[in-house]
Amino acid sequence: MGRYIARRLGQGLVVIFGVTIFVFVITRLIGDPVKFMLPLSATPEQREARRAAMGLDDGILTQFFRFIGDLLRLDLGESTYVRGQSALSVVFDYLPRTLQLVALGMIFAVVLSIPLGVLASRKPGGITDRILTTLSLIGLSMPQFFLGFMLLIAFTVKLQWFETGPGPWTTNLVLPAVCLALPAIGRLSIVVRSSMIDEMNTQYVKVAKAKGMTQRRIMGVHALRNAGIPYVTLLGWEIIRALAGYTVVVESVFNWPGLGFMAKTAIKNQDFYLIQAIVFVIAVIVVLLNIVIDIAYKVLDPRVDLQ
């Protein structure tokens, strides 16, 4: 196990390094943060002086090697949008809100998707199954920006149960978390349903039935655990997609100032350093999450060989 984790961490480092360098190249190709830092009326001389002060007038290779050197010391430069702060510290200022959002959203997703999937799988093709499957399809096919605005209109504008923007989680985080969770609930419950149906048709379930074990115990204890592997795979994917993409939309719609919100701002202002730092930190989290998922396989099914 220890050797396995070490190997995966090694591979992860390569991934993180690769992704970060990729972002370096992309940002240098597309933009110029100085254009967005200075007021419109700044003179060309002032713009040149700023570029020089930031080292942006050096050749791209010089900049690249300086970037690699800094990266090895975990120095990702100063944000050009949130001024006077290292890009990494900006990321850590905004990351906790995104983690809260993803955590609450995924708690909703897990708590709802398992019972819904199990319920649907009890009588495949039955009326409960059809209703739940249809709902799942609606949930997973609805774009989040649309879903978000629908939720806002219903629960914030009309009912006024919830608020937008930063604030206590009970009033301000529930709605974005639901918005993040609904498509995930759709996808996850469908996986629970189909793996449960598969499991219920296996030999060991037939044996359990034959020896008189109750349906509830068969489903709840035996089948569900075996259905866990595809579920964990998809849940991991959901968390990663939420961190690395969905939160950008959800946080913008609900004005929740997390890392997704900041990512949008950083791109809008061509803040190379902040974009790099965000991608870097998210890449680290994704690599670690993948290792955790692999370990979860082992826990769920001891037959899995991590070597």
Binding site: M37, P39, T43, Q46, A49, A52
Partner: peptide
């Protein structure tokens, strides 16, 4: 002088 302010103008 250090080109560190946006308020040069």
């Amino acid at each position: 002088a250090d080109a560190a302010t946006d308020n040069d103008g």
